[in-house]
Design a binder for these strands. Structure first.
Lengths: 179, 179
DNA sequence: ATACTCTTACTTAACGTTCGTTAATGTTGG
DNA sequence: CCAACATTAACGAACGTTAAGTAAGAGTAT
């Protein structure tokens, strides 16, 4: 619900109704709405990054690991749209404390592996920026899904994680493959 | 205010206080909150795309136009953070009608020019997907600004539109520059 | 086995605040 | 004088939250 409607778009009564208990009963389990939200986020974000990091840290050439990363990342975003929405809402609404927490607890591991891969792929490039570019290249295709259908050339298959992965892999391979 | 806090995070009384009139007076100018929001959006989105389209449709080689597009797009996002935030909020919260309206009124022009450029750059590539990739490559650097400072290698200059533009241009040139 | 308490999980009812919105009423410049 | 623009006051609904009470189960002494 937070993924779909945002923090202030979901009331305690909405949640209670969805769970099947009274609104007051929620306060038996969570001290207040903010803590409920934080625990929901912590639950949604737990173990999401493990697969990504594993794909990046496995064996193989840098191009093979790049392809595995893109496959793993697109797969994650395709499988869990709520995770992606929560993430992007947090980027818009999260205060300093929450963003720092998410950065350290969720992003740090995979991001370090991504920068390491970035340095292998393009040593003359800023690894931080290249890592961000790789992630954005994937994420934006999911982020724009609801509007792309109204843009010329938009087809349902463009929302298929496999198709997105192939496109992104090809693009990045062209840039860094024959380095 | 809608860019910073979202639709349900801003009340009519908040707006009235910011404008310096009573909440009731707002209803002299707008029939209700939703229409006020829609007019605010329409205002924020007006003429935003003209510069992008111009950059894409000018003269020069495809690589030159690519560079001009990236410069123009990063400049726009750097100059008007509210526009970017509203755009991303709309992608999260916008219903079908609103998204279709934004797609046709704001995105269609530049997106068509982007797909045309994409076809020149990489005829064997899906132009729709490549256009999205070009946009995402730029936007994600702005979107992640608040969290990148907590990630390794993050430096303030990474938020500089010029630096972002140079990075993205180089990346895309590597992919499509040498045929 | 019965009666007792204690804890856990829940209920209904209500608190005070804020929400979007409307009604009725000034104020004011052309 | 009148249309435009503002005001104050209030409406009912929804908000987050709290208080007080209840039903069910576990553990334990009698």
């Amino acid at each position: 619900m937070f993924a779909a409607r945002g923090y202030s778009g979901v009331s305690m009564r909405h949640i209670s109704q969805a769970v099947g208990i009274s609104a007051a009963a929620l306060y038996h389990h969570f001290p207040d709405k903010e803590n409920l939200y934080l625990e929901a986020m912590a639950h949604a974000f737990t173990d999401k990054a493990a697969g990504i990091t594993a794909a990046l840290e496995g064996s193989g050439t840098s191009l093979e690991r790049l392809e595995r990363f893109v496959d793993s990342f697109t797969g994650l975003m395709g499988d869990d749209p709520d995770f992606r929405a929560l993430l992007q809402r947090e980027l818009l609404d999260g205060d300093e404390i929450r963003l720092k927490l998410v950065a350290e607890r969720v992003f740090l591991g995979p991001f370090q592996a991504m920068t390491a891969l970035a340095e292998e792929l393009a040593p003359e490039c800023d690894p931080h920026m290249l890592a961000i570019s790789m992630a954005g290249l994937v994420l934006f295709h999911f982020e724009t899904a609801p509007v792309r259908r109204f843009l010329p050339g938009g087809r349902p298959e463009h929302n298929d994680p496999k198709i997105i992965a192939r496109h992104v892999t090809r693009l990045l391979s062209r840039a860094f493959g024959d380095g």
